[in-house]
Design a binder for these strands. Structure first.
Lengths: 406, 406
DNA sequence: AGGTTTTTCTCGACAGTCGAGAAAATAAAT
DNA sequence: ATTTATTTTCTCGACTGTCGAGAAAAACCT
């Protein structure tokens, strides 16, 4: 069903447009906002006046730099308009970041995750505590937090927001919405970690002028395998998704996976899968809970020195990844792949297998090999993805609530 | 990039809304349009007046049926506002349908396709001839044709519109846009056949009140395998895509496919793949060009009588399909599957294999088996898909051009 | 013929965008 | 010190669009 439009909606959309121009390009003057957004100067006036009245924008004076004529007055987000908390759940720690409305990092700390028995039971409580401490440290009121953006590996129900399955907690589900609902007024969102990576990469790629960005995939290699896809839709927005790539069926003859199935990509290409085949452990052995990086480095070193089984282990991992990517291209379209995560350090060993696996796709055979690149800044990308998503969401909310009621 | 909005765009969007309400619900009175669209009565007045002036709508009098009060005046599309041609390219014939703006079928004929040598060379000319004859028979001017909607099996570049690879012509490409550009002013579109099936099914599913339709897949079984996906996006529109499912990699150990690769789904589940494994022909044999249905029926009959190899051939075809569908669910989400095409008559033999293949997916294991149903009306669905897509497109075009200029 | 009922049509209020030009604020020139 | 040039911001009127309410129209009923 299409939906009706109205003049008020026009104002909303254009207000969001102004806010997003400010996000992407930084503080800007009246006239620059006009050129960035394509709106008439008079319209920008009206909108900025509204937003200023609502306490969202402020005029940051100064900047007497050169030029004659009337000095420009820069608009920027009011930092105290609201706050955002980004929570990054990783295998051994949880990182909490407090960010103000302008996107500036205010505070950050990490807490170790309790792996022992009862760790999962204590987890919700730990999160609630840490969140409370985070705002207390900066003397911020809980109700001033607009959004809490959580990321984890695993599959996620973004609507609810519930963690459905994760490498950390298995099938144990957490409904973060319910968990934080009474105490926090903030909008709680939960996203797969690699989805955020893809989002951040797409944002960057789309900023480049003349880029004609269409789509990309982010592939995170580690103990588990994550995939994020970011594509531009017809309206020109970036839409990111995170399919259950690591536990997609690779080969019916494949080994046993942590998830209990046989033949998942992860069972071949996750660290424990590589370990298993390097040491010729029977493929139906129950996978190791955790493989230290040092262990992987040893296998890689011996592969680089010509050890056949170690070489083969990385090779077959690469083929599993390449086959998975080839299916990705079949389902969507050919797109560049960005590889991140701790597994990137073995990319030299994986590369040939990946290409071998990719070339089996009809798409790749018709249109050529996609571009594959390595990105070592996974952590930063995840954080940028958090910011972009949550702040953009917050902009929409603010426009919908604060401004209309004035 | 988001884009700016304006009051004129509001009118455009609402005009499209009115036209689409008319498409879906049939001729309607003033007040009914108002309730269907949610627009105020006065707004409907203004819009219908515009559209009437532009020659798009007309008041269809009559309908004195019962009731007191002022009789309602029904609005409906002016049939002569424009015409649409749907071209359905199938393996042995090409079907041409002429439809008026209201969606009523005016004329239809089929032409056999020349399979012999030089058939592909003659094909463009044949199409041009047939299109000219179609409009001549109904005494319609070529310039009155708003859209030519073409469908074929195979992969398609929808933007151009170019047939990139098809089971009928292999890698031989046809750019229908260029082919028809000088002679026809109509907008030429090209879509995968099963995409249209999915679109039509989704349209139907979405019409049911309280359906909460989210997504579905259409799987067409025959000599080749087609998949269409239709999903509702955030704006509530139905978006359909047709991945290259038949030639997606199923198993690296799979047989030789028509496309030249090894291990495509089609190489196991297409008719020639089933035939090959039923007769234990080596899997690297070059596939049969065409398998008559009678031949398939024989294999099926012997499978139903307990012949092991025949049974196994269908079983492994089903597993290949099920595995492919399981990957579909991994990449997107769990969604119901509608099976169409000539292969549906062997569904009893395929079913167990499909379910066996599906259950290997993490998604299915977590959320349960998706609903699988058989639909025998593939032809009609393709035609409905043609109509829905092309007429909706035409509505957008008309609103953007005719109305604004008045 | 007059009342009832239902639908269609019309009018004024309100919200929004746009272009043009006035007003403001500064640097350079005189 | 005053004027001029330049650049930016602000304001005004015209235009387009939606909406709600009520008037007008066109049938049926008594």
């Amino acid at each position: 069903m299409l939906t009706k439009s109205s003049t008020e909606l026009v104002r909303q959309q254009n207000s969001v447009l102004v806010l997003s121009a400010l996000r992407r390009g930084g503080a800007a003057s009246h006239t620059e906002l006009s050129t960035r957004t394509g709106l008439a100067s008079a319209t920008v006036s009206a909108i900025t006046a509204d937003l200023e009245r609502a306490g969202v924008l402020e005029k940051s004076e100064q900047q007497a730099l050169g030029g004659r004529g009337r000095p420009r007055v820069l608009f920027s987000q009011r930092r105290d308009c609201g706050y955002l908390i980004a929570v990054r759940i990783s295998s051994d720690t949880v990182q909490y970041s407090l960010v103000d409305y302008s996107g500036r990092l205010m505070d950050r700390f990490e807490e170790p995750r309790n792996h022992g028995a009862g760790g999962a039971d204590a987890f919700p409580g730990e999160i609630k505590d840490a969140l409370s401490r985070l705002v207390a440290r900066s003397h911020i009121d809980k109700d001033a937090v607009l959004a809490i953006s959580i990321s984890s590996k695993g599959t996620v129900d973004a609507m609810n927001p519930t963690l459905l399955w994760s490498p950390l907690f298995g099938g144990r589900q957490f409904d973060f919405g319910k968990l934080l609902a009474p105490e926090w007024r903030a909008k709680v969102s939960l996203n797969n970690e690699t989805l955020l990576v893809a989002q951040a990469l797409a944002l960057k790629a789309d900023k480049v002028p003349e880029s004609k960005f269409q789509a990309l995939a982010a592939l995170s290699l580690g103990h588990s395998i994550g995939l994020g896809i970011a594509r531009k839709n017809r309206q020109g927005e970036i839409e990111a998704t995170a399919p259950n790539f690591g536990h997609m069926l690779n080969s019916a003859q494949g080994g046993l996976c942590r998830c209990g199935s046989y033949g998942c990509i992860e069972a071949s290409a996750g660290f424990y899968g590589i370990l298993r085949s390097a040491f010729q452990v029977p493929p139906d052995t129950i996978p190791a809970k955790f493989v230290p990086l040092a262990e992987m480095d040893k296998i890689a070193a011996s592969a680089r020195q010509g050890n056949r089984m170690a070489e083969y282990a990385f090779r077959q991992a690469g083929v599993a990844l390449g086959n998975g990517l080839s299916r990705l291209m079949s389902f969507y379209e050919r797109m560049p792949v960005h590889i991140t995560g701790p597994g990137t350090r073995y990319f030299d060993l994986l590369r040939r297998g990946i290409e071998e696996g990719l070339v089996q796709s009809h798409e790749v055979r018709l249109q050529g090999m996609p571009q594959i690149s390595v990105n070592l800044e996974e952590q930063r990308l995840v954080f940028e993805g958090h910011l972009d998503r949550a702040l953009t969401d917050a902009d929409y909310d603010i426009v919908a609530t604060k401004v209309s009621s004035s």
